[in-house]
Design a binder for these strands. Sequence first.
DNA 1: TAGGCCATCTGGTCCT
DNA 2: AGGACCAGATGGCCTA
Length: 156
Amino acid sequence: MKTCKASPLENGTGCVVRSSSERMESRAGCVLKGSSERMENAAKRRLAANARERRRMQGLNTAFDRLRKVVPQWGQDKKLSKYETLQMALSYIMALTRILAEAERFSSEREWLSLHCEHFHGDSYHHYPAQKPAADSDPYAHRVFGYHPEHFQIAN
DNA sequence: TAGGCCATCTGGTCCT
DNA sequence: AGGACCAGATGGCCTA
């Protein structure tokens, strides 16, 4: 469809598109015969639309870059693809949600314990597994987060 | 060299 | 009418 050669429509990046211009020419032949001004206007509008689309996609890519920065990327020297970034963000959000829920549950349990049991086991709650800090952040994060690239296929 | 990823162009559709 | 959004097509680049 796109042949990148021999077209009146330059895209600004050196690549030119053939099929659309052929369509435009045929349209010009039957509807806009002799109206080179209208053809020019159509071409201008097409170029403007291309530029808008380029800007839109650049904005989208900027958003992907920002997302990559806040999403974990353990030991990946290569940047995540767009699809991987979305899957990672999904897993990350779900893991954080789970952590939050566990923290809330833990704090309410601790209140209950301190209310009823503090005279018997004053500091027993210090041994709650959920409170245990991660000495080694990566293995802990891996355990909590549980991200594996192969999960992408499952999620799909 | 095949396959994955990406950028770009393009026409269609929806919205303002 | 014009802009935003979307999906399909295509070619370029990179890597195994």
